[in-house]
């Protein structure tokens, strides 16, 4: 768990301009999806990026893979600054990153057979002969639990859980060091969710992978993460080990988020929800973006954006709050 940094993200900012009419009469607005995010992901760990809709977690994941070019900031992966890489360098670096998305069916090309889908990253990077690639697809299919006899079928013949297995096999084809999984189990049924999570845990142990795991589901993050980053309004508000963040949260938002998760059995009708809603990405409040919803907010919170620092100095947990618990 205490490996070296495989991935380090520094001051990542991503703004999306909102385009207007043909001649751009009128000023366009900007969606501030990510507003300065920094973190390190160590070799062999699973870092869960959690937060609610629109908090910027998916944008961070895509910027790390350079699917979006960051507006500013650096993304160091295996010692290379990804933001400086162009076509060939980027393609070479991407070989070491596997991607898994939320909707398994739409992320698989419906015209390709499963064998070709799984071997696609190998074909893209020109690894091996077509025969070797097919053999590799066999191997991966067996590892993720897809029957060899099904390899010549097409994605629509499979259930959601099986499609996600295929997507995992594809993500692992080029032997990546890092796998970015964006809500990989969110669209799956409960009994299938745990199957796929188990597969991810299994693959990580066997292949020494590192995961950047994006999820809105606290329970899923709790099950799979070594460390957790909680995002709110494009920023990380709390960062630390899974035990600390989920059992001793220091940021009021983390606390509210954890309290909102319904528990199995027993807390019927327990009222405790807060009445407010997440901010929009086009107009963020001044100071700490959480202050309009925060029960502890004071004058300072409306004026100054708190830095992500260690409360009290010594602890391993970082929080962006003027008045942490």
């Amino acid at each position: 768990m205490n490996g070296a940094a495989l991935l380090s993200v520094e001051g990542l900012v991503k703004h999306f301009p909102v385009q207007r009419s043909l001649f751009r009469l009128g000023r366009g607005t900007v969606v501030r999806a990510v507003n300065g995010v920094s973190f390190e992901l160590r070799t062999g760990e699973t870092l869960a990026l959690v937060g609610e809709t629109g908090c910027g977690k998916t944008t961070v994941a895509r910027a790390v893979a350079m699917l979006y070019r960051p507006t500013t900031g650096r993304v160091r992966f295996r010692g290379q600054d990804m933001t400086r890489l162009r076509r060939r360098g980027l393609k070479a670096a991407r070989r070491h990153i596997g991607l898994i998305f939320q909707d398994p069916l739409s992320s698989l090309n419906p015209r390709l057979s499963v064998a070709r889908l799984i071997a696609e990253p190998l074909a893209i990077h020109g690894i091996g002969s077509s025969r070797q690639r097919r053999e590799r697809a066999f191997e991966l299919a067996a590892a993720v639990g897809i029957a060899i006899g099904d390899l010549d079928r097409h994605p629509h013949a499979f259930s959601g859980g099986q499609c996600q297995r295929i997507a995992i096999a594809r993500a692992l084809a080029s032997d990546p060091a890092l796998v970015i999984a964006d809500e990989p189990v969110s669209s799956l049924d409960a009994s299938i969710q745990s199957q796929v999570l188990n597969l991810l845990i299994d693959m990580k142990e066997r292949r020494g992978l590192s995961y950047l795991f994006i999820t809105h589901d606290i329970a899923v993050a709790d099950a799979i993460a070594d460390r957790v980053a909680v995002m709110y309004a494009g920023r990380i508000v709390e960062f630390g080990g899974r035990d600390e963040v989920f059992h001793h949260p220091v940021h009021p938002y983390t606390r509210a988020l954890l309290d909102a998760v319904p528990q199995l059995g027993g807390d019927r009708g327990k009222a405790r929800s807060e009445p407010t809603e997440p901010p929009s990405a086009t107009s963020s409040p001044s100071g700490c973006p959480y202050h309009p919803r925060c029960p502890k907010a004071q004058a300072l919170c409306k004026e100054t954006m708190p830095d992500l620092t260690s409360p009290g100095g010594g602890g391993a947990t970082l929080a962006a709050c003027h008045f942490p618990d």
Partner: peptide, 8 residues
């Protein structure tokens, strides 16, 4: 119309 109105 509202989308265009907001642009201004």
């Amino acid at each position: 119309s509202l989308a265009a109105g907001r642009a201004g």
